[in-house]
Nucleic acid binder design. Structure first.
Lengths: 199, 199
DNA sequence: CGTTGGCTTGAGAGGGCTCAAGGCCAGTGG
DNA sequence: CCACTGGCCTTGAGCCCTCTCAAGCCAACG
């Protein structure tokens, strides 16, 4: 159950088995079905989640009904609404399973205690945040590009995820409509269409 | 010289004067004029910089000549190209002073050593990264909005910076052209113009 | 004052959006 | 086994927000 996490830790820091046990004792396993939520708008996000099976998305639901996806979490990765988790303020976002999913959860209180008892664990979460940060940074860079460039960046970085994600969600993550993404993939985006129409 | 930084640390963790001295001994002060660079494209970013006076911008220079600003650093804040700093790979970005500026620099080697000697210092940098992360996260959210919404978000979050930043740089940060930003500020963006033209 | 950098304003073009319809497939129930 | 349904993808046509290109203005500074 904690094998994936144990291996993930080993890739970042070295921890004795005793220390790992102290850590793992604080974890709670959650199993949720596709489309169920780990967090909904206006709730405070009290946990960080390590995905051991399945996938999740973090998204904003606008008043218009439009959904904007900001982050995905699949196996071997941590996901949470960091802002709500750290500040204790109500979340503006939703964290929903996009497949049948299993996660390990750790609460803020338990985590803070672990940081005090075992500095290496804070070091681990520091490194995890560095990786997460890199992903968000790329997301900002990507959002400055044109639709075709965005999709090219996405496939080059997350190509392996593409088969598990409906186009809708990819389009939302890239800040474009499903239709635009589809036209890019099929090679019929406006740029080309216009040219041939005028011939 | 290290007063600002000392106070900044105190706001995040508690450190003895001895420990602070160990930290401060590793810092090097740099003074640079407006428009000079701390880092240029293709160089490896070897330092994290704490700004004690002035301001900097981190930006990408596209082959088209277009500049895209991703981050600012003013007094009391850390700035670096985190990705290049952590991976040791050449940076894709430029870090340039937008005012006459003074920074304290710490190298990756020194910092890693400090993390091993004084875990609280890693805790401090972990917390700083959490704050930096929040800024990039907002930046992603912002990039999904319309031009007018972007500007509204910017003023509500960073209004105090607005007077120190040329509109050009704000526009770039927001992912729009100077002209569009200007039209939004003067209340003459297309939406309104068209309506009155048709009357 | 000439130059330079930044801000303003205008007109036209185009990339991506909206709205709308239709197709495909898997799951479900008759 | 087949009709029905819902979710997702595809395609089309027109529109609009933002960009591009181009001038002109103003203030700071040599």
């Amino acid at each position: 159950m904690t094998d994936l996490l144990s291996a993930h830790i080993d890739r970042h820091i070295s921890l004795s088995n005793t220390q790992k046990s102290l850590f793992f004792d604080q974890l709670v396993i959650h199993t949720i079905e596709k489309n169920q939520f780990l967090l909904r708008e206006n709730e405070v996000c009290k946990y960080e989640y390590f995905v051991i099976k399945g996938g999740l998305r973090l998204y904003e639901l606008e008043r218009s009904g439009n959904e904007k996806v900001f982050y995905f979490g699949f196996e071997d990765w941590w996901i949470t609404d960091k802002y709500s988790f750290l500040t204790g303020k109500p979340s503006l976002y939703n964290l929903q399973a996009i497949e049948d999913t299993q996660v390990l959860a750790i609460s803020k209180e338990k985590l803070d205690q672990l940081f005090m008892d075992i500095p290496a664990i804070e070091s681990y979460f520091h490194k995890v945040l560095q990786s997460t940060f890199a992903i968000w940074q790329v997301h900002v860079l990507l959002m400055h590009k044109t639709a075709a460039e965005k999709y090219a960046m996405f496939t080059s970085m997350y190509g392996s995820l593409e088969s598990r994600l409906p186009q809708q969600l990819i389009a939302s993550y890239l800040g474009m409509t499903r239709e635009t993404l589809n036209r890019i993939k099929s090679g019929t985006h406006d740029k080309l269409r216009r040219r041939s129409r005028s011939l």
